[in-house]
Design a protein around this nucleic acid. Sequence first.
RNA 1: GGCCCCUUGGUCAAGCGGUUAAGACAUCGCCCUUUCACGGCGGAGACAUGGGUUCGAUUCCCGUAGGGGUCACCA
Length: 573
Amino acid sequence: MKKRSLSYLYVPLKLNEKERNELKMTYKELADLIFPNVKDIKYYEEKYPERNLPEGAVVTRFAPSPTGFVHIGGLYQSLVAKTIANKTKGVFFLRVEDTDQKREVENGITDIVNSLKTFDMAPDEGMISDTEEIGDYGPYKQSLRKDIYQSYAKYMIEMGKAYPCFCTPEEGEELRKKQEAAKVRTGYYGVWAKCRNYSIDEMVEKIKNGEEYVIRFKSPGREDRKIKHKDVIKGNVDFPENDQDIVIIKSDGLPTYHFAHAVDDHLMRTTHVIRSDEWLSSVPLHLQLFQELGFKAPKYAHISPIMKNDNGNKRKLSKRKDPEAAVSYYEEMGVPDLAIKEYLLNIANSSFENWRRQNKDAKIEDFDFSLNKMSVSGALFDMVKLLDVSKIVISKFSAEEVYEKALKWAKTHDEELTKLLEDKEYSLKIFNIERGNQKPRKDIAKWSDVKDSIIYMYDDKFLNANIEYPYQVINNKEDINKILDLYIEKYYNEEDDKQTWFDKIKELAGEMGYAKEVKEFKQNPEMYKAHVGDVSTVLRVALTGRTNTPDMYEIMQVLGKDSIIKRFQKARI
RNA sequence: GGCCCCUUGGUCAAGCGGUUAAGACAUCGCCCUUUCACGGCGGAGACAUGGGUUCGAUUCCCGUAGGGGUCACCA
């Protein structure tokens, strides 16, 4: 590939130096006419110096536009950006891209800030509320940076690298149609860039006549030349050079994304631009902008979006169509934020899973995350897998943590659960069943599962409920009543340890003529009506109304004798 | 349509010229003093396709097909 020349002069090269200076002067006059009251870019260059950071430190950012809820993809980007910044002792900042007033949404910024906060991903710098920010490289809200963009736009005009364009949107539309009809590339470029060729005098005149205009970048690119770009994630990508004279300042005086990106990420000294891969095809433009502005270009890492399977088609998770695209969706379901982060990390670096298995109790911050190990193609979002990760995450919480988190969730989402949890001491006993040992129970995947998994443990709920007892093998009234009566009268003792308790159920089974061992029953099925397991099931069903529960010994310990007796009475009728 | 990217089991994915092609989730079976969950063991299941290059291609090159992205005074 041919190396690109480093500078482009837009004044005819045949002119002598004096003439050239005169022409430059006129560019200056044009620039002064358009932006009379902005500072020289030197001011900003000095105000926002290179950051003083350790070797290898990476500066990243999350730069959303405040257009409503936070997308899971945005969270994903932030997680990656923050992780890599923290790992290198760099900086992660939040910049709000609100240059499109039409799309503004109320509380947009607050939503973003709060979301990051709940995920324990607050930025080191940038917006921390709707109006407040921290850090020395602000403002971090683009609408407050209008003067800055205009300074740089003015500089571009002075250099002959940008010009006012007087084409109306309608003319733009016409141009596009013409190009489509002629089957050529659409856009404002080359011979189609009408306003590019006006003389300075003509431009000045139009402006003085009050014609509306935007500022366009005068692209030095040629479509027939290729540029090479090495993306941190995607690897080598070749593109044709950009030759579009894109708008850099809109008629409302605010910049377009592209220009704001170049100016901001330069001034904020971003080293790595981590963003969604929908931007990949803008890289030639962005690189050119950095070049023409005289900025050092950042490294780019384009993240593949999270996809969804839609009737056999893969597509990006959509804000509009997919509720699961919003991070609030998971909050409402009660998926712990740690689970979501682990799941996303899983997608980001598949080695995370192995690491997690080997470092069960480590903090996710200790995982050696690597940007360039990220996948180049988009992953299908897998709710089942998320919930599996979540189950494991929750299984590692202490009963106290489960209690606190479930309660917090319940307070905003489930009144009945909130009431159940009022008795903290009792609730903790329940959450402690089969928890904290080597093989903790993994039956809660989200806080919305909690109520169903504990409700039968509360007497005032259970004893007053209308319950259908799902008895299994032993299902006749007589035998059931006999088992329940005998168990209470003869066998049950609150003081028993687990083995004794276990043996006593065997005794009971024996007394009733059932097999005391399941194996024995299986060997001689014709000798017995049922086995000890079936007897257990009767007790379990009478006690809980369910066939599937955690360890029955522990359940009995938590319920206590009074409750057990009451439950058996209710069951025998 | 132009340009760009991608394609390993149902899903997420290791792999970087020679492997019995890892692992996880899901699924199926067995085991784990009585359920369920957990755990253990095992099964089934993949390199889109056609050409090259090579002694040898999942791996490199080209084409085809499929998927995705992008072509705004939106970001």
